[in-house]
């Protein structure tokens, strides 16, 4: 049901930050990757728009609250506005729950394949960020040699090649407020960055503190080693 709020959401996110149109596809790169990576907040905001408009029709991300979006640059009012758009009693303290009231319903509706919770999906898969991107852009016509199971789609990134999730991303499935061209690939890359943040909300802080800690202990080690040598030399 949440997909009907897409225009409202886009409007809400438009005011979220003075983000510039960006292209993370040529070449494909994720700011969150690498030893000193940090979350690209603009991309993660766009990714949340894709999540809320498209993914959230089936998937939950129940470790996240709407108020957590403030970490991506939304003001408390904007986060509350997003939550109000989904008509939640708890406001922005609500979690991003499954859209299905009955927990047994999705599995029975999708031939036994329950849509997994997306809060930590990036941590659960090898090279999770890239995996999400490749999965969402990996749909293709099945080769002659593959007999597709009923209700399955051919996907080059999915283990076994047959996935029960239909291809959901298409060009202009959402309208980005910052002017970024909403191609299906850009949507996939943005949602991958959003889910990277969802799985590890402290990634930026961890890398930032880590760099300082390593520099500090590097100098402390040098000083401690030098002082040890000095003290032992005096003895002789």
């Amino acid at each position: 049901m949440r997909r009907f709020f897409a225009p409202l959401l886009a409007l809400g996110l438009a005011a979220a930050g003075a983000a510039q149109a960006e292209d993370t596809l040529t070449p494909l790169h994720f700011q969150s990757q690498g030893a000193l990576g940090s979350i690209d907040k603009a991309a993660a905001q766009r990714g949340f728009l894709v999540y809320q408009t498209v993914c959230a029709a089936c998937h939950s991300a129940n470790a996240l609250h709407y108020r957590d979006l403030e970490a991506l640059g939304l003001t408390p009012d904007q986060a509350a506005g997003v939550a109000a758009g989904v008509k939640l009693a708890d406001g922005s303290a609500a979690t991003l729950d499954s859209p299905f009231k009955d927990p047994a319903m999705p599995a029975s509706a999708f031939g036994g394949a329950a849509p997994p919770d997306l809060s930590s999906i990036v941590a659960q898969r090898k090279h999770g960020t890239m995996y999400i991107y490749k999965l969402l852009t990996g749909y293709a016509a099945a080769p002659q040699s593959v007999n597709l199971l009923p209700g399955h789609y051919y996907n080059t990134a999915f283990p076994g090649g047959q996935i029960a999730m239909p291809p959901v991303l298409r060009d202009n499935a959402v309208t980005y407020a910052d002017g970024t061209a909403a191609t299906a690939q850009q949507e996939a890359a943005d949602v991958a960055e959003f889910l990277t943040w969802a799985a590890d909300p402290n990634l930026s802080a961890r890398h930032q503190i880590g760099l300082r800690a390593v520099i500090f202990f590097l100098f402390l080690s040098l000083v401690a080693l030098a002082s040890k040598r000095g003290i032992w030399r005096e003895r002789a």
Partner: peptide, 28 residues
């Protein structure tokens, strides 16, 4: 004190350096 204390502090500092690389850049 002070000879082996200095050695312990040096060993501890190097250990803390290796530990913080693991902690902040490979927590899993």
């Amino acid at each position: 004190y002070p000879y082996y204390l200095a050695q312990y502090l040096a060993a501890l500092a190097v250990f803390a350096l290796i530990f913080s690389v693991l902690l902040f850049f490979a927590p899993h």
